[in-house]
Design a binder for these strands. Structure first.
Lengths: 221, 221
DNA sequence: ATACTAAGTGTATAATGAACACTAAGTATG
DNA sequence: CATACTTAGTGTTCATTATACACTTAGTAT
């Protein structure tokens, strides 16, 4: 599989996707069960080899669509992992991407069918193929840091939401409680949110105003 | 040069180095003049193909030593660039690294010899090969951001220095003036510096205390 | 002795972040 | 239909941090 170029062997290149969502107050990553050796039947990140005509971003996008049927989600390049022995068969370098998707946007799995897809809390991962555990942890660390100085949670929220849902999103990611009044002040002070005028009338309690982000731009605060 | 693997062509992989220093109040990047096509005689980033048994970090380190004779400098992976046409001949993906070196640590070029190495202010770059201008600008943006929330300037300072030299370093990188008293307060408050006890007696003026970093750790502030 | 240069130092004000508890508006229930 | 229940919504005080700002000190050069 490897070849010579200018006197050097050329490794293979893959793109791996760390696809995050938040559900039941947990930051979760999507894994797929490997059908082939090595690591057959272990869980792993969705990924694949890069095609000759496609950019790295395009490859990540393609893999996302192949595995989830979803497109138009937030994605960014994370890091490139290239330890010589990370694939036991041969030299493979992987460019890892982070992608974020709101739980509500995920296609419902057909519940009566066994699936090779799973969502796992990032702090309770099963045995993973290759160096994928390291990659997910690196991704989670980046996401958790970025949450505190950007509006990257945009990528995980449904179109409209209550402020309490937004707060819960932050709390799930950083794994800590936040003060309600300070949180609301801070969020509204960013100027990135707007009221929709609609109210969420679900539940036996006072209805909440629904908000949305004014723009899909991810900005540093 | 490309080969098949699992039905996909395998691109070549290089590592390119954005080596920064600061000199004469300017953030400068090191460039090498290309001896071969494509882009023969244009300036470019130092780089090279990855060897089969070496990690990405090792490759970056090797290229650093090959081009400068220096090792033991601060390095971090920057980003991976993989646009399909970034190399006009064939598909090559490059993993870019940032490296920092104090101007004082650079080996003196033999001045009577024409050299294929040059240091250029990042805001006054010559025509560059490939997408290397984009890479340098991306690197400079990252460095400028990181300077404000870490002690990454450690990698650019000599062992001992006056606080005014440290301030000048910050000012050169961010291209802005800082308040002397506030700067000193802030730096000393980090607890990362210590007095050496020595004084710098150069110049017709009051001698300055020399400081050094307590540790080589790069930390977030 | 005087001029010159960079080193070194403190305070007042503004802005930001953190702690903290009650009232409001609905639904469910007996 | 009165009461219990649940989540929504709202301000103030205090501590910390960031900013603006100017003069004295210690040496060298002439």
């Amino acid at each position: 599989m490897n070849t010579k170029y200018a006197g050097f062997e050329s490794p293979g290149i893959t793109v791996d996707l760390v696809l995050f969502t938040v559900n039941e107050n947990h930051l979760k990553g999507m894994l797929v069960k490997r059908a082939e050796e090595p690591f057959r039947n272990d869980w792993s990140l969705p990924g694949g080899f890069i095609k000759l005509g496609e950019s790295l971003d395009d490859a990540a996008q393609r893999i996302l669509v192949e595995k989830t049927g979803v497109s138009d989600v937030y994605m960014e390049q994370l890091y490139t992992f290239g330890a010589p022995k990370r694939d036991p068969r041969s030299r493979v370098i992987t460019v890892a991407y982070i992608a974020l998707i709101p739980w509500q946007s995920l296609p419902q799995p057909e519940s009566d069918k066994v699936t090779d897809l799973g969502w796992f809390p990032v702090d309770q991962l099963p045995k993973l193929a290759f160096d994928h555990k390291e990659i997910i942890h690196y991704a989670a660390t980046r996401l958790r840091a970025k949450v505190s100085y950007s509006n990257i949670v945009y990528g995980l929220m449904p179109k409209q939401f209550r402020l309490s849902e937004l707060q819960s999103m932050y709390e799930s990611i950083i794994n800590d409680k936040l003060d309600k009044r300070n949180f609301r002040k801070r969020m509204l002070a960013t100027g990135l949110l707007k009221e929709t005028g609609k109210k969420d009338i679900a539940g036996a309690h006072r209805p909440a105003m629904l908000y949305q982000f004014k723009s899909k731009e991810i900005v540093f605060l």
